[in-house]
Design a protein around this nucleic acid. Structure first.
Length: 296
DNA sequence: CCTTGAACCTGGGCGC
DNA sequence: TGCGCCCAGGTTCAAG
């Protein structure tokens, strides 16, 4: 389920239970996810304290006090849930989850924080996610991180930055915005939403949003603002679903979020005075949803 | 370099 | 109730 806002939502949900906790044990329930777990995975994290939980793009990074980090990616279907020792893991608590039978609970952290025990359970039906041990001082140069572009939450993604990146690109905007080297953390949903807000067609060639002088066009400046806004809105929407800190699941963030384009095929375009209807097209194997009338 | 398509895997939804 | 088909939030690799 995870694009950047969902991963950030998960991070915030895990933070109060995991930050400062000791991994007193762990269950690795199968040899691999997307690829095999690191050698002696459980032994290398056992008895370590979690000193920080960070996020970069769609990756979670658990920093341990032995100078190792656990890089965790949720793939398409990964989720974490927290079970506190004193509370019961009643099936009813997870009635909305098909995973409640534990069939795809592939990894379990057993934690102790100041005498409070909790389990943090990683569930991933499709197993596109993974966990990997990487020394802290090798993180920045690691293959997963070294080519990543700036986070869309910060001022690294400016209209000038995008103009410079897009001016040589003939590829459609859809694929350029999905390119993690240009912006880190956008996925199919929020690319569709940002393009809808900025009224840019997903098929528009990227370089046509840059002036001959290499400056951002008005539409590109608008897109920059909308990327920041849509990601910010989604993080706020996701965060508000986690106030009980029992269920940590990015799906809830998506679930409560109202989309204007993504998944809205056949619906009226919600832009004021637009009589268009949201269409679905396929671009490089993925669905794009947009309004052909006002997104140009 | 760039772009596309397939692959990884399971499950849900739909039509018949 | 079941079968077959299509679809799904991501990433990576091979091939054109």
């Amino acid at each position: 389920m995870p694009e950047l806002p969902e991963v950030e939502t998960v991070r915030r949900g895990l933070e109060p239970v995991m930050h400062g906790a000791t991994i007193i044990n762990a269950d690795q329930n199968r040899p691999d996810l997307r690829f095999p777990f690191s050698e002696n995975f459980v032994a290398r994290i056992k008895d370590c304290k979690i000193t920080d939980i960070k996020r970069r793009s769609k990756y979670l990074i658990f920093v341990l006090d032995n100078d190792l980090t656990i890089i965790s990616h949720l793939g398409m279907s990964g989720s974490f849930r927290i079970v506190k020792e004193n509370s019961e893991d009643q099936p009813g608590d997870f009635a909305h989850e098909k995973s409640k039978d534990g069939k795809h609970d592939h990894f379990v952290f057993h934690l102790d924080k100041n005498g409070h025990r909790a389990k943090v359970i990683y569930n991933d039906p499709r197993r596109f996610g993974f966990m990997l041990l990487v020394p802290l001082n090798e993180l920045d140069e690691h293959a997963y991180f070294k080519d990543l572009g700036p986070e869309p939450t910060g001022n690294g993604v400016s209209s000038e930055y995008l103009a410079q990146k897009l001016q040589t690109k003939s590829a459609p905007m859809k694929s350029v915005l999905l390119d993690q080297r240009i912006i880190a953390g956008l996925g199919n949903i929020y690319v569709c939403e940002a393009l809808w807000r900025a009224r840019i067609s997903p098929e528009r060639k990227a370089s046509t949003l840059v002036t001959k002088g290499g400056k951002p066009s008005a539409k590109l400046s608008s897109l920059t603002t909308h990327i920041h806004d849509v990601i910010g809105d989604a993080i706020r929407a996701g965060g508000s679903t986690l106030n009980d800190h029992i269920q940590t699941d990015g799906k809830m963030g998506y679930f409560q979020h109202q989309f204007n384009a993504y998944g809205q095929e056949g619906e009226r375009c919600q832009h004021e005075n637009c009589k268009g209807v949201i269409a679905r097209i396929t671009q490089s194997g993925r669905s794009s949803f947009y309004c052909p009338k006002c997104q140009t």
